[in-house]
Design a binder for these strands. Structure first.
Lengths: 144, 144
DNA sequence: GCCTACTTGCCATATAATTGCAAGTTTAGC
DNA sequence: GCTAAACTTGCAATTATATGGCAAGTAGGC
């Protein structure tokens, strides 16, 4: 059993739901990816690694992972939801969305030292910071 | 001519495109609204104020306004795009998305004093900060 | 091993948004 | 003013992402 698989199993065992091959594999894929992945990307990646899951099941699996706090969901400007999971789950972090290749990277080391003065009565729950620009790959391509 | 209409006219005159009743009215509505509005909300509001625009035209009008830098577009977690226009256009500001009523508020006074350490090669273009939680109205309702 | 509740797969469906094209309207040149 | 070109609008059809319902399958406790 790989290091990641053990980690994934451990995470899944702390949930209420059942441990199924799909959930295992999807969470593993999410943990291994440096970027947030869309439903389609995950579906294709899963197929390549031998997991055949129905489109709807994948949607439900991802929703479930988010619900369990094991993954989180980012909706891009292209209206596509992307998912990621991080080793340090509760660590607040920002995202970087590349305008060119549409990939979404997680910036784990970011310090969201933002000062907020919310209007009266507003209750803050979560802070999402998304940076847009070009990733290393794409800004390199454009420079040539 | 109202104060806002004059302001809107002035803004539109600085674009390349033509000044049409729909563009005028939509930009006016956006400027007057404290919250970012979805396509549907704008369509209904426009109808109420006597402007009948085709659904597609409204989409194109909004796209055009964004293109001209007169409005900007926020995609919510519900995959719905919302639009807003601000008097101080280039002022960086954050958004507050209410989890309950789905409204998106612009927080004009926010100071995005965020410290970023981007990976090598990444080029930053824009910073989007979205706070989620409950707006004054909704957190009040829930408390009762 | 068996039962029950949870998961999955397949069907159909919802919803936001986009594309193509013809008709209408504004602007510019004459 | 008249005409042509460019821009804008409206309508029909289509795309793409995601969701809902229900029967079949499967994990996990006993």
């Amino acid at each position: 059993m790989s290091n990641t698989t053990a980690q994934v199993l451990n995470l899944l065992q702390h949930t209420q739901g059942r441990i199924t091959p799909i959930r295992l594999r999807i969470l593993e894929l999410l943990l291994q990816s440096p970027t947030a992945m869309s439903h389609l990307e995950l579906e294709q990646l899963a197929q390549q690694t031998g997991i055949e899951a129905d489109r709807v099941t994948l949607y439900r699996t991802l929703d479930w992972l988010v619900e369990q706090g094991l993954a989180h969901k980012i909706t891009g400007v292209d209206r596509v939801s992307r998912y990621n999971a991080l080793a340090e789950f509760n660590a607040p972090h920002a995202h970087f969305a590349c305008e060119r290749c549409k990939q979404v990277f997680c910036l784990e080391r970011i310090q969201p030292a933002v000062l907020f003065t919310l209007p009266t009565g507003f209750k803050l729950n979560q802070v999402d910071i998304t940076l847009t620009g070009q990733c290393a790959n794409c800004s390199n391509v454009n420079a040539i």
